[in-house]
Amino acid sequence: MDVPYELNAYTRVLKLASTPDWEEFSRISLIAAAGILLIGLIGFLIFLIMGVLPGA
């Protein structure tokens, strides 16, 4: 395990990274929110189905 080499690699990646502009940030936020809502909706539907099936 060559620690200085790994630190150089991490430093190189951080130098290449840049902060997103407002348009990119808002688009990423909307996509993430849509994914969270979709997962929540799927979980809620499973909850409703499991609530109905045992009573049948």
Rank of each mutant, 00 (worst) to 15 (best):
D21F: 01
P54M: 00
S26L: 06
W22T: 12
E24M: 00
G43Y: 06
M1Y: 10
N8A: 13
P4R: 04
Y5T: 00
A32N: 04
P4D: 03
I49R: 09
I39P: 05
G40C: 06
G35W: 05
W22L: 09
W22D: 15
Y5M: 05
S29A: 12
T19Q: 12
S29E: 09
F47H: 04
R12D: 15
R12Q: 14
L53V: 07
L41R: 02
G43W: 00
L7M: 13
A32H: 04
E6D: 09
I31Y: 03
R12M: 12
T19H: 03
S29L: 10
V13N: 05
L38Q: 07
I42P: 03
L38R: 06
I49L: 07
V52M: 15
P4W: 05
V13Q: 06
A33H: 09
I42V: 14
R12P: 02
E6F: 15
G35L: 11
A32C: 05
R12V: 04
T11Q: 03
A17W: 05
G55D: 13
I28N: 09
G51L: 11
L48P: 07
L14I: 02
L45W: 08
Y5F: 08
E24A: 09
W22A: 10
N8V: 04
L30C: 05
I31V: 12
E6L: 14
K15C: 12
V52A: 15
G55H: 14
A34D: 12
V52C: 14
A32T: 07
L37K: 06
G51W: 00
L37A: 13
L38E: 03
K15A: 14
A34P: 03
R27I: 11
L45F: 09
L30E: 11
A32G: 08
L7A: 10
P20Y: 06
T11W: 04
M50F: 08
L16A: 15
P20D: 01
L38S: 15
G43L: 13
V3S: 03
M50L: 00
S18R: 13
G43H: 04
N8R: 01
F25L: 11
P4L: 01
D2P: 01
A9V: 09
E23D: 07
I46P: 08
S29V: 02
S29H: 02
G43E: 10
E23K: 14
L38W: 08
G40E: 10
G43M: 07
L30H: 11
A32V: 00
N8H: 06
R12A: 14
G43C: 12
T19M: 05
L45G: 07
F44C: 01
L48Q: 02
S29C: 03
G43D: 03
L53E: 00
A17D: 13
K15W: 05
L53D: 09
V13P: 00
S18G: 11
G35K: 13
